[in-house]
Design a protein around this nucleic acid. Structure first.
Lengths: 333, 333
DNA sequence: ATGAAAGCGCTAACAA
DNA sequence: TTGTTAGCGCTTTCAT
């Protein structure tokens, strides 16, 4: 193994100069820096991570806690994880993968052992049991999603309220007057994943503002439930021409159900969704995407700022972007 | 931060005794061990990972390199990653997540820096450019999948040859006499991902052995290609009653295509697949699963053995398990 | 069965 | 602008 003293000897300087030249933590003359860099390159020097962590009390590793729970869309998690790793690497950090299963002990373990400098948590619940721990851990963290009370913490997510609004505005702009939201399964609202409720708020507020008639229907994640909701919708709102779907599992079955009931999409009925882009694209449905890659990147940027001692906003809401596809059209005459 | 000297003081022993009591690396009297354990527990002692790594030249971290390439089934990767983390934790190790994108430099970086003790690589190609590096890295590694030449390396995967055989045997056992394999896109065979070719070998060998008429058709990963293959199959093998599909993207479209052509599954045609269990289950198709969780677990076990200095087999082939579902039935009379 | 002490390789405070 | 040096917290020889 090649160590800092080897580099120092070859460059004809002291070890500390090598350290400083490589880290840039104090001014070094251009000439020395170049000699050091050349020596390091020629020898293939890589600082020993453990030694560095011990001396600097920085491991340059971030923890990423991923959920396992059913009902989580796996490709989104993976895409997110990859974007976190990529962003972390740009800042010379690595990523330690933890499963939610390890729970609070896991978080305490990796921070107490100084294995990681900071944490990113996915799948945060309204009353997440990890909140008090995070506040007391003394390490920067960023949560994906919003708990009820985020005081003293840092959260980031798509602005789901605005996403709900954006979908309604799109439909209103196309002349639709009667709209419905097909939402998540009832238990999601009960369990308290904040984003589902925010979509409802945004949807309702935007519909009211635009003077649209509107209704909200939770829906189980099964094709059968989708068919039921489709029928119910048509009975309760015969003039319905616009639907917002926030439930990826039923998007396809729901469209099928509408077409079985004799409604063509988008000729008779416009459909827009809030869902992974992948799915919307494959079904050619107008949608607001869950920007998992951007969330991951931004989460890392936030952590880096916090590690640098900067103060960052407690909450970051990413603006929704709606992509028009073949499932929405002007209201039929 | 609570350190080993704190624990030592509280237990009334020397730091080295604490270290030994906790690691079990030398005999300690029951009484002392208990005092040390109690002290550690009461203080919430966690050894500093960096210090430990520096002193012992073991980081207790494994690297997991995940692929990004298109055509990789994401949920399988995620399931695999989770099983690796879970298995690693059982051995008191953590997992560092690397993307394939970082390439050989990434591998060299984390090993040279002593960030990780060992590596797990997914998505190994027949002539993977990382092979020479792995051989020279001086750290244990396990690859998921088989390169052309695995000398000096450790590989593990589903036994795809046996999987192909198993599917044919299942069909033969149901009385089918004419079978076809719908395989991966042509470029997969060209690019040289070994498993696709092994399925073909197993399929053909088993069909010959059982005296079945058989044919193999590569197939692009599009519904249109699936429809074409379905038609071609029926023209070329009018007596066809059994199909093996090794191409998850076209499984559903292919079944649809057969049914559009007037063939009921399983009444007229039996279909069996080699694909993620998730997909087979949702389509209710008889299948051999890709046992990603088991592969991950076994990969970790292999690494642990290697880290312990044991010699492990160069290749591990997991036996296929076929799960019967509603898509296969006895040959129609 | 236990203790003392020498590093592991690096960073950063202190000196010059 | 550079060098000297004292640790960082742990493991592990070497002694007892």
């Amino acid at each position: 193994m090649v160590k800092i003293t080897d580099v120092a000897r070859r460059a004809g300087v002291s070890p500390s100069t090598v350290s400083y030249a490589l880290s840039g933590k104090r001014p070094i003359s251009a000439a020395t820096r170049q000699r050091v860099e050349a020596a390091a390159r020629e020898l293939g020097y890589r600082p020993h991570a453990g030694a560095r962590a011990l001396a600097s009390s920085r491991s340059n590793v971030l923890a990423l806690v991923v959920p396992l729970r059913a009902g989580i869309h796996v490709p989104v998690v993976m895409q997110f994880a990859v974007s976190v790793v990529t962003a972390a690497r740009r800042h010379d950090h690595d990523v330690l993968l933890l499963t939610q299963e390890e729970g609070e002990d896991g978080l305490r373990r990796v921070t107490d052992a100084a294995l990681v400098d900071a944490l990113i948590l996915m799948d945060v619940q309204l009353h997440d049991p990890r909140l008090p721990l995070l506040r007391s851990l003394g390490r920067p963290s960023v949560m994906i999603g919003f708990p009820r009370d985020s005081t003293g913490l840092t959260c980031i997510d798509l602005d789901f309220r605005a996403a709900g609004e954006r979908c309604v505005e799109h439909l209103a702009g196309l002349g639709h007057r009667v709209v419905a939201l097909v939402g998540s399964p009832p238990e999601v609202y009960v369990r308290g994943t904040a984003f589902a409720q925010r979509v409802v708020q945004g949807f309702t507020a935007a519909a009211d503002r635009a003077g649209l008639a509107s209704a909200v229907h939770p829906c189980e994640a099964t094709p059968a439930a989708a068919r039921q909701v489709a029928e119910k919708l048509l009975h309760e709102q015969p003039a319905l021409t616009g639907v917002v779907v926030h439930n990826e599992a039923v998007l396809e079955p729901l469209i099928d159900a509408f077409e079985h009931l004799g409604l063509r999409v988008p000729d008779d009925l416009s459909v827009t969704a809030i869902c992974p882009d992948e799915l919307a694209e494959s079904l050619d449905v107008t949608s607001v995407a869950l920007p998992s890659a951007e969330v991951g990147e931004r989460a890392v940027e936030l952590l880096m700022s916090k590690l640098a001692g900067d103060v960052v906003p407690e909450t970051t809401l990413l603006p929704p972007e709606l992509t028009g596809r073949a499932s929405t059209a002007p209201r039929p005459a």
